[in-house]
């Protein structure tokens, strides 16, 4: 099973009632897999006429209380931003998968991490956030999907699973099993027909003086709760590290390889891997930021997450960036070189 198929099967395991999507490389295995498996499970699969339609089909299914998802790749996710903004305004749960590719524009189909800003800043118009999960292995593609549906339902938010073409295409051994679900609030807001109760209304329109402000403050309070409770990150050998590398997704794997080699050379390297890109592990990074360290952010972009790392480090240590934009993938040796250069430039004792 490739990463995309593993992710799709995990969605089924998570109780996804409906999948809506439109073809785009490199995520085509997801709709193909779903077109076969969802009907087998008596669930819904629709190939939409566009990403715009797909995200709005998700809106429709979600408004009735069903678990719904879509998947796409960067240009398609841009088209979905309208729908994601409406989902946020209407407080509807949804799971959106972005198997990213190089941009801007049609870019290319190589793996990239250049959608970080779009993913973590809301993406569409208005004052909102989406939860962003960044797996770094095929197993984590599975785990993130199981978590995504729960988070979406718990907070009535869009959860974006941000992976890249490598994770989508690659195969690795995985374990597929359902984990116990969190305790989730009842969907008493869902449109199920006003039978024996007052009508339910799902809307993102809040007219009248101060009404939208009140609504947005309610959203803000919810987002703060997410920041408080849902940050996920992994860190390794940071305690004695003189260089702390921050990377996510598949890049973090390459960093892991380079860090291990650097340690063999006696360079004290540790790494931090954000799993939730929003909420960002600001506190975790801030806690280890001090004047004796250098932070190196590695991304397959021209520099996006590095801004969040700088905010977290808050001037307490230098933050250096190394990136390969445009769908290029950094190699272990290239990162090792970068790490070696840092030890020279800052005269870190080995």
């Amino acid at each position: 099973m490739c990463g995309n198929e593993a992710l799709a099967e995990a969605a089924i395991l998570a109780g996804c009632d409906a999948y809506f999507g439109y073809p785009i490389t490199p995520q085509n295995e997801i709709p193909a897999y779903m077109s076969r498996r969802m009907p087998e499970e008596g669930r819904v699969f629709v190939q939409s006429e566009s990403e715009l339609a797909a995200i709005n089909m998700v809106f429709g299914a979600s408004a009735t209380g069903k678990r719904a998802m879509t998947s796409s790749s960067s240009p398609g996710i841009s088209l979905m931003q309208e729908g994601i903004s409406y989902l946020a305004g209407a407080e509807l749960p949804a799971v959106v998968v972005n198997i990213t590719r190089g941009g801007p524009g049609l870019g290319n189909i190589s793996p990239a991490q250049s959608d970080y800003f779009q993913a973590t800043r809301g993406g569409g118009h208005g004052d909102y956030r989406t939860i962003v999960l960044a797996p770094s292995s095929v197993q984590e593609m599975v785990d993130c999907m199981l978590l995504a549906f729960d988070l979406a339902d718990q907070y009535r938010m869009t959860v974006l699973v941000l992976a890249d073409g490598i994770l989508g295409q690659m195969m690795e051994p995985i374990v597929l099993e359902k984990k116990p679900s969190r305790e989730l609030p009842p969907k008493d807001w869902a449109l199920t027909g006003a039978k024996g109760r007052e009508q339910n209304i799902i809307r993102s329109l809040w007219l009248g003086e101060g009404v939208l402000e009140k609504h947005n403050n309610k959203l803000k309070a919810k987002y703060e709760q997410v920041q408080e409770n849902e940050v996920l990150c992994e860190q390794y050998e940071v305690d004695d590290a003189e260089i702390v590398v921050v990377a996510y997704g598949v890049t973090a794997r390459i960093v892991r390889g380079a860090a291990a080699k650097a340690r063999e050379e006696g360079i004290k390297v540790g790494w931090i891997r954000p799993i939730t890109l929003w909420p960002f592990p600001t506190e975790q990074i801030s806690k280890v930021a001090n004047e004796f360290r250098i932070f190196l952010t590695v991304e397959m972009s021209a520099g996006q997450m590095v801004e969040d790392v700088k905010l977290a480090v808050a001037g307490k240590a230098p933050v250096v960036f190394y990136g390969r934009p445009g769908g290029s993938v950094p190699t272990v040796d290239e990162l090792l070189d970068k790490i070696r250069q840092l030890t020279l430039r800052h005269e870190i004792k080995i």
Binding site: A18, S48, M57, F59, G60, A68, A194, Q199, I201
Partner: peptide
């Protein structure tokens, strides 16, 4: 006085599709 939603400009048939297919 029924369950209702208001959706993005022009997208109602897609939203309706999502609703009807699942319900």
């Amino acid at each position: 006085d029924i369950d209702m939603t208001e959706v993005a400009h022009g997208r109602a048939p897609a939203v309706a599709t999502g609703m009807k297919r699942t319900n």
